[in-house]
Nucleic acid binder design. Structure first.
Lengths: 346, 346
DNA sequence: GTTCAGTGGGAAAACGTTTTCCCAATCGGG
DNA sequence: CCCGATTGGGAAAACGTTTTCCCACTGAAC
């Protein structure tokens, strides 16, 4: 006791622990803790007021380490994103962050670069941090991912379904339906000579989008030619699009529409056509509708995913720990390139 | 003791604490801790091996809360970014993350949306998290920022200097010099009828860039007309650029070059010109050279900041707690728009 | 045969919370 | 007037680390 009060003399406005608050309010630390955590049944209004005043005066905030140690869980929510350079993922992260903050949770954002080893590294670290939940924004299969599922930490798959099995909470759009929408839209516009470029990955999102597009064109009686479907191994999505487009150009194919399973792929492909200076470049359509498309890619139509809605869905999935909630958010085909929009939205 | 060993029976492969490791290796927890932290002087090679084996077998990783509590500091490094939708900031974050991870540190990324209240909220939270350091990626003035400087948590200012005073470690480019470079480049190209668009903020970066550009043109005998310098209050950078360009167009001004103090502003401005469908739109040059410029903005020249280098500089600034390290990284004028690049770099 | 220095390692305190008991006082009903 | 329930609040344990002492042992020098 004497020791503690001596410490107080030394640190006048420094860190400040729950002890300082208790002493100032003339109560025990138990009472302070209860007030902080809103346990009203155990404190008289007068006491609550005194404690609040002391907290205010000392600008006190509970140290998270103490909490985490006792409660065996922290206020951190890990978001492991496959590629933060993708503006769409960045937008989802932003939405998640806002929603989490509103819950008093703190987002830790990590970039796995779509690499299993890095994803494992972060999974380990976030387990050590006793993260409240782990959100996988486009997960990849990895050993640690399998192990984590046997633990109790909530796991939430966003955009891509669980690559290790059918279980797991999921948030995303109906990728197959979106693919079919693209085909339907193309047929309506009379664009029947289409090419399709996708990443050579086995993510559920890519797979479903490809399947939807192919099925849609086939159902309309205009199945895509095999030679018009490309998935080169060329690095990131930008390079994939660029390389695929170059091959198409070299092959002499002249599609009237190029469907890309992500906007980044479309950016890369567009660049190839621009360089080739073809007289009448094909229409293009991508997926995600990255927020900057409206500014930078005025020729690119896209399936818009509702970024803003992901944050709330993630929060819901975390609290509603009820297993395996599947949230399918509505997508929307945004058409650009026929006539320029008169004014920028927003 | 009996209680503890009973618990072990229950949790065969669950969380696992240092106790489990110690028991398995037949040593005390003190020894385990020493091995983990590389204190070699206090353990025989044989013991070290046994402990390592046990750690491996149990897949043990120290809980960060215990550590943080004892050491009064965590392995978290907070990065408070003003706007993650800006690809340049996202790129800097990515670089920081990689460099920090290599040091065994974990980056917590937060988006302050350039709002003082939000920045304060995060500063508070990160203090409660006992963050090892706080990196301010484009800081804004705020009450808490002033208070944090009186504490011992290292504070590192990136891109923008400390808005509250002259002190503080800084990492960035020579913005004024870059502005002068832009003017020199313009004069060389014969572009003397320039407009300048900048954000109406008082950030050091914007201020220095503007000053450099103005000084450069003035020194060349072609000072910018007052009516050609715009800084409308219009929201984010995209809207600022769009609105400023609209005003220029409305005023009948026909600059041969538009200088923007950020690429985002340039994107917005470019869109206005595209909509207006002017026959010969002006050349444009921005700052930052966002990573996707080469793909999406082939007409935009830019002052490239070396994103990749920021991570290491940040790590260095954290460890070299020697006060007020100022790191000025080299910039580079990237010219685009005369002739398309034959091949995409990278 | 004693000391001395060094080596290897353990016991326990401390970090800041939350939470489980426990206790004292008050109050209402019989 | 006594008894039981309720209310308000405190003491202390527990959480998982790191780190400071402290101790036992081993050789080596005397």
């Amino acid at each position: 006791m004497a020791k503690v009060s001596a410490r107080e003399e030394i640190s006048p406005a420094e860190g400040g622990s729950i002890n300082d608050v208790a002493r100032r309010a003339g109560v025990s630390i138990a009472t302070v803790s209860r007030v902080i955590n809103g346990v009203t049944r155990k404190a008289s209004p007068a006491t609550v007021a005194r404690v609040r005043e002391a907290i205010e005066a000392l600008d006190y905030r509970p140290t998270s380490a103490g909490r985490a140690l006792r409660q065996k869980t922290s206020r951190l929510v890990a978001v492991l994103a496959a590629n933060l350079a993708n503006p769409a993922m960045a937008a989802i992260s932003a939405s998640a962050e806002a929603a989490l903050r509103e819950q008093g949770l703190v987002m830790v954002l990590c970039d796995t670069h779509d690499r299993p080893a890095l994803q494992d590294e972060y999974l380990r670290e976030m387990l050590a941090q006793q993260a409240r939940a782990i959100v996988l924004l486009a997960a990849v299969d990895s050993p640690m991912l399998r192990k984590v599922q046997t633990l109790k930490t909530p796991l939430i798959f966003v955009s891509r379904r669980n690559p290790t099995g059918p279980e797991g909470a999921f948030i995303g759009i109906d990728n197959r339906g979106a693919g079919e929408d693209v085909a339907r839209w193309a047929i309506e516009r009379g664009l029947r000579n289409a090419a399709l470029i996708h990443a050579p990955s086995f993510s559920s999102a890519t797979r479903d989008r490809v399947a939807g597009v192919l099925a849609g064109f086939a159902a309309a009686g205009s199945p895509l030619l095999r030679s018009m479907v490309l998935a080169p191994e060329a690095g990131d999505h930008l390079m994939i699009g660029f390389e695929a487009a170059r091959r198409l150009l070299a092959s002499g194919a002249r599609p009237d529409l190029v469907v890309c399973t992500s906007d980044l792929i479309a950016f890369g492909a567009a660049r190839a056509w621009r360089e080739a200076a073809v007289a009448a470049p094909p229409r293009m359509i991508g997926f995600d509708d990255s927020p900057m498309n409206r500014w930078l890619a005025p020729e690119l139509s896209s399936i818009r995913i509702p970024y803003e809605a992901f944050g709330d869905a993630i929060v819901e999935a975390i609290s509603g720990a009820s297993e395996n909630v599947r949230t399918i958010l509505p997508h929307e085909l945004v058409e650009r390139g026929f006539t320029p929009e008169p004014n920028p939205p927003r």
